[in-house]
Write a protein that binds this DNA or RNA. Structure first.
Lengths: 91, 91, 91, 91
DNA sequence: CATGAAAAAGAAGCGC
DNA sequence: GCGCTTCTTTTTCATG
C-alpha cells in the first residue's frame, strides 16, 4: 500500500489507519460546517432584527460589502483604471 | 420622523439613536461574518491535511454532501434521473 | 398522465411526446452550451494575442470588468455609501 | 520604450500604436463577452420552457452534465466514492 | 502541479 | 406559494 489513499486494495491493518484518518477528517469537517451554518443563522437573526428596526437589509449588506473591500486594493484599482482610461481616451 | 429608518432627513436626537443602532447592527454582522470566514479557513486546512494524507478532497466533499442530504429526497431525485435517462434512451 | 412531467408511469403515446420534447430541450441546451464554450475559446485567443503583444491580461480583465459595471448603478451605490458613511460617522 | 506594454511612460508615437491595439483587444473581448451573455440568456429561456412543460430543470442539468463527462473518469470517481463510503461503513 | 481567479450550479431568502 | 434575486459552493481554466 502506498501513501496515496485509495485506502487499500488489500485487507490489512494499514487500511484501518487510513479509514480511521478519513473518518476523523470527515467528522471534523462536518463539525466545522455545522458551526458555519450556525453562524449563518446568527447573521440572519441580526438581519431580521435590523429589518424589525426599520432598516433596509439589502442596503446594509451593500454597506458591509463595501466596507469589506480592502481600501488599499481599492485605491490601486482606481489608479489602474485611470491609467488605462487615459491610454484609451475614455471618459 | 417615522419608524422607517432612512435614519432621518432632519437633524434630531432620534437620528442618533437610529445611527447608533445601525452601527451596532453592522458591527455585529461584520463580526459574525469574520468568524464565518475563519471557520472557512479551518475547513480548508482540514481539506489540505486530507490532501496531504493522500485523500481526494473532491470525493471527500461529495461524501459529506451525500451524508448531509435527506436520503428520501435523494432516492426520489435519483429515480427521476433514471426516468429521464430512460426517456432519452441513454445508458 | 398529468402535465407534470415525470414523463409517465404507464406506456402510451403521451409519454413519447414528453420524451421527444425532453430530448429536444436537452439537445438544444447542449448546442447552446457548445457555442458558449466556443466563444470562451475565442476569448482566450484574444487574451493570448494580448499577452503576445506585451499586455498584462490580468489587468485587461480588470479593465473590462470595470467598464462592464453599469455607471448609473455605480453612481447610485456611491451615493448610498456616502449617505450611510455619514450616518455612521466613518471616514 | 520596450516591447513590454505599460503603454509608455513617455509620450511618443509608439504609445499610440499600443493604445490602439489595446483598445482593439478590449473591444473585441467585450463583444465576445456580450455574445456569451446572450447565449446564457438563450439557455435560461430553454430551461424556462422546460419548466413550463413540467420538467424538472435541476434534473435536466444533471443529465446534461452526465452526458458531458468522460464515462471512464465517471466510473473511476464513482468507484472511489464507494471505496470511501465502505471505509466509513456507511450505506 | 498548484495556486488563484472566473464561471456555473445549487441552495436559500425575499418579495409579490 | 412561486418566481426572482442573492449567496454559497463547486468546477473549470489560466498562470507560474
Amino acid at each position: 500500500m502506498t501513501e496515496e489513499n485509495g485506502i487499500g486494495h488489500n485487507s490489512n491493518r494499514f487500511e484501518d489507519v487510513g479509514a480511521k484518518r478519513l473518518r476523523s477528517i470527515i467528522e471534523r469537517a462536518e463539525r466545522v460546517i455545522e458551526e458555519k451554518k450556525a453562524l449563518g443563522d446568527d447573521l440572519n437573526e441580526i438581519y431580521s432584527e435590523a429589518k424589525g428596526s426599520g432598516f433596509d437589509v439589502k442596503i446594509i449588506k451593500k454597506i458591509i460589502k463595501i466596507r469589506s473591500r480592502d481600501p488599499k486594493k481599492q485605491r490601486e484599482e482606481d489608479a489602474l483604471v485611470e491609467t488605462y482610461k487615459a491610454a484609451l481616451c475614455i471618459d
